[in-house]
Amino acid sequence: ETGKELVLALYDYQEKSPREVTMKKGDILTLLNSTNKDWWKVEVNDRQGFVPAAYVKKL
């Protein structure tokens, strides 16, 4: 879809709370919100949640 910003997972991340999502290094995720410098909201496999901003980079 146009207008979607994507990020690349630089590291594996295992969710530690229900508000977070698990990702694997190399995953491409849809970026939903990056206003917080530490935690970015992403969508992966129809799930939305937060990942550490340092673990992903914008494509």
Rank of each mutant, 00 (worst) to 15 (best):
K25H: 06
V56D: 01
K57Y: 10
D46S: 11
A53E: 03
S34F: 07
N36G: 10
V56E: 01
A53K: 06
N45R: 13
Q48S: 11
E43W: 07
D46H: 14
V21E: 00
K4Q: 11
K16Q: 14
L29G: 11
L31D: 00
V42W: 00
S17A: 08
L6E: 06
I28Y: 06
K41S: 07
S34G: 12
M23G: 00
I28Q: 04
Y13P: 00
E1N: 15
Y13K: 00
I28A: 03
N45G: 15
N45Q: 12
K37Y: 08
A54F: 08
V44Q: 15
D46K: 11
K41W: 15
Q48E: 10
E20P: 05
P18D: 12
K4A: 12
T35C: 12
K37W: 08
T30H: 09
L31P: 00
T22V: 03
T35V: 10
Q14A: 14
E15D: 05
D27W: 11
K24V: 09
V7F: 07
V7C: 12
Q14C: 10
V56F: 05
Q48M: 11
S34P: 06
S17I: 04
V56L: 15
I28T: 06
K41C: 12
K37M: 09
Y11Q: 13
V7H: 04
D46M: 10
V56N: 00
K41T: 08
G26I: 01
E43P: 00
N36M: 09
K16G: 08
K58Q: 09
F50V: 07
L31E: 00
K57Q: 14
L59N: 04
G26D: 06
D12L: 02
N33Y: 07
Y55I: 06
R19T: 12
K16I: 07
L10G: 02
Q14F: 15
E20T: 07
F50P: 00
L8P: 00
G26T: 02
P52I: 02
E1Y: 05
L8H: 04
D27M: 14
N45V: 10
L10Q: 04
T30S: 09
V42F: 01
A9H: 01
E15R: 13
P52N: 02
V42P: 00
T30Y: 12
K58W: 08
W39H: 03
D12N: 08
E43C: 11
N36A: 09
Y11R: 15
Q14P: 06
T2M: 13
Q14R: 09
N36Y: 08
G49Q: 02
L31G: 01
E15W: 05
W40R: 01
F50T: 03
N45I: 11
R19E: 13
V51W: 00
D38A: 11
R47C: 06
V21Y: 04
K25W: 03
V44L: 15
P18C: 09
L8D: 01
K25V: 07
K37S: 13
E1S: 15
D38Q: 11
T2W: 13
G26R: 02
K41Q: 12
T22E: 04
L10P: 00
L10W: 04
T35A: 12
I28C: 06
L59I: 14
K41D: 03
L10V: 07
S34K: 08
K41E: 14
K41F: 15
L31K: 00
R19G: 15
Y11E: 09
T35K: 11
R47E: 05
K25T: 07
L59C: 11
I28N: 03
T35M: 11
E15C: 11
D46Q: 11
N45A: 11
I28D: 00
K4Y: 14
A53C: 07
T30I: 15
L31Y: 02
T35G: 10
V44F: 15
E1V: 13
Q14D: 14
K37V: 11
Y55G: 06
L59S: 04
K24P: 01
Q48P: 06
G26S: 03
Q14G: 07
M23I: 15
G26E: 02
T22C: 06
W39P: 00
M23P: 00
R19K: 13
L31A: 02
E1W: 05
K4D: 08
Y11P: 01
K25S: 07
I28P: 01
D27E: 12
W40V: 06
P52E: 02
L32F: 04
N33Q: 10
L32W: 05
P18E: 12
E5M: 12
K16E: 08
K37C: 10
D27G: 04
G3S: 14
G3D: 12
W39S: 03
T35L: 09
K58F: 09
Q48T: 11
L32I: 15
V7R: 02
Y11F: 13
G49H: 02
G49M: 05
Y13C: 02
E15N: 07
D27V: 05
Y55E: 02
L31H: 00
T2P: 12
A54W: 09
F50G: 01
P18T: 10
D46W: 08
N33E: 13
K24R: 13
V56T: 04
R19Y: 14
E43G: 08
N45T: 09
Y11L: 09
N33K: 06
W40M: 03
Y11V: 11
A54P: 08
K58E: 07
L32Y: 04
V56C: 13
R47Q: 07
A9V: 11
R47W: 04
K37T: 11
W40C: 04
L59V: 12
N33V: 09
E15G: 15
D38K: 14
G26M: 03
L59A: 05
W40G: 00
G49I: 04
G3R: 13
T30W: 13
T2K: 10
S17T: 12
Y55T: 07
N45S: 10
L6K: 11
N45C: 10
Y13F: 07
V21R: 02
N36L: 08
A9C: 12
E20G: 12
Y11I: 10
Q14M: 15
K24M: 09
V42T: 01
K57I: 15
V21L: 15
A54V: 10
T35D: 15
W39N: 02
S34L: 05
V42S: 00
E15L: 07
F50K: 02
S17N: 13
Q48N: 08
M23E: 00
Q48I: 15
D12W: 03
T30F: 13
T22H: 04
E43T: 07
L29C: 10
S17Q: 09
K24Y: 12
T35F: 10
A53F: 03
K58A: 08
K58G: 05
D12Y: 04
Y13V: 01
E1K: 03
G26Q: 02
D46P: 05
L29T: 01
A53G: 04
K16T: 13
K37Q: 12
L59T: 06
L8E: 14
G26Y: 06
V56G: 01
T2E: 13
L6M: 11
T22G: 09
V56W: 01
K41I: 14
Q48A: 12
R19V: 10
V44A: 14
K58I: 13
E1D: 15
W39V: 03
L29P: 01
V56Q: 00
G3V: 14
A54S: 15
A9E: 00
D27I: 04
A53W: 01
D12S: 08
P18F: 08
L32S: 03
G26P: 00
G26H: 05
E43H: 07
A53M: 05
Q48W: 08
A54T: 11
Y11W: 09
K25E: 07
L6A: 07
Y55D: 03
F50E: 04
W39T: 02
V7G: 12
L29V: 06
K58S: 08
A9S: 05
E20Q: 11
K37D: 11
G3I: 14
K41M: 14
T35I: 10
E15V: 06
L6T: 08
E43Q: 13
N33D: 15
K16H: 09
L10R: 04
K16N: 10
V51E: 01
D46V: 06
A53S: 14
W39A: 02
A53V: 06
L6R: 10
K16M: 12
K41P: 01
L10D: 02
L10M: 10
K4N: 10
N36H: 12
L59W: 08
L29K: 00
L32T: 05
L32C: 07
D12I: 02
P52H: 02
L10F: 04
T35W: 09
K41N: 06
P18N: 10
N45F: 10
K4E: 09
I28M: 07
D46G: 15
T2F: 13
